[in-house]
Design a protein around this nucleic acid. Sequence first.
DNA 1: CTCTTGACTGAGG
DNA 2: GCCTCAGCCAAGA
Length: 109
Amino acid sequence: MTPETLNFFDKVYEVARQIPYGRVTSYGAIANFLGAKHGARMVGYAMNGSHNKDVPAHRVVNRKGLLTGKHHFQGTNLMQQLLENEGLEVVENQIQNFDKVFWDPIQLL
DNA sequence: CTCTTGACTGAGG
DNA sequence: GCCTCAGCCAAGA
């Protein structure tokens, strides 16, 4: 675990916290925003340790709007419930109107 | 050290 | 649109 990796983890959490209410983004978008050469996979891996942080990990999905990380949440459909609670429409672990609720961290600049 | 496993993604058929 | 393949790379066994 290099210092750069730790910094990367913190950056991921920092970006994730900036995701607006009712919006979502993808692992790749975050990776691209951070210029992460480790790739989107590491973003997902970073989220693995986001449990005891104030990170809305449920707003981060894969590029198709699929809730690939729902099994990392407590219960079976907690992630979906959280998203629906924010006014999002989720069917079969997939976010509906994904292109409309998608939020690219690049817009933060 | 090697091998496997992923909360991924883009390209090609 | 679907499926498959190949890069990607940190962590754990």
